[in-house]
Amino acid sequence: MNNSSLPADEQIHSHVSSPQQLISIFVALLGLTALTVSASTWPVGRFDVWIALGIAGVKAFLVAAYFMHLRYDKPTNSLLLLFSVGVVVLFLGVTLADVHQSEPQVQAAGLPQIPASEAAP
């Protein structure tokens, strides 16, 4: 953005999205929403969650890259977002692995008949 009446110190340079781009992203997001709704009826068994997550991932990418301007922004901000998602995946992955490993013992211990007040360690 150039406003020649202002000194350089007061100017901000940033990307302006064109109407065509905004509209086409919006249309793509609507299409993907329709796709994910219909995908939920496909007979794919346990893969349904991965298909759902994949489509949601594409939608999230479109929103982040274009609506949130990450494509035209400093790479630091994109890295931050990716890094935070990475930390969530780490948290989720390790916790999930542990819970599934210990589930047989939990089942064997015969939960949850004990009242909560006596369950304290």
Partner: peptide, 27 residues
């Protein structure tokens, strides 16, 4: 802008905890 993105990182982690709980109980 960087400050806002950092705040959004905290939001991702905030919701992230719920997604972990979701994944544990769903699986």
């Amino acid at each position: 802008k960087l400050g806002m993105w950092l705040f959004l990182v905290t939001e991702v982690l905030f919701f992230g905890g719920l997604f972990v709980a979701y994944a544990v109980f769903r699986t």
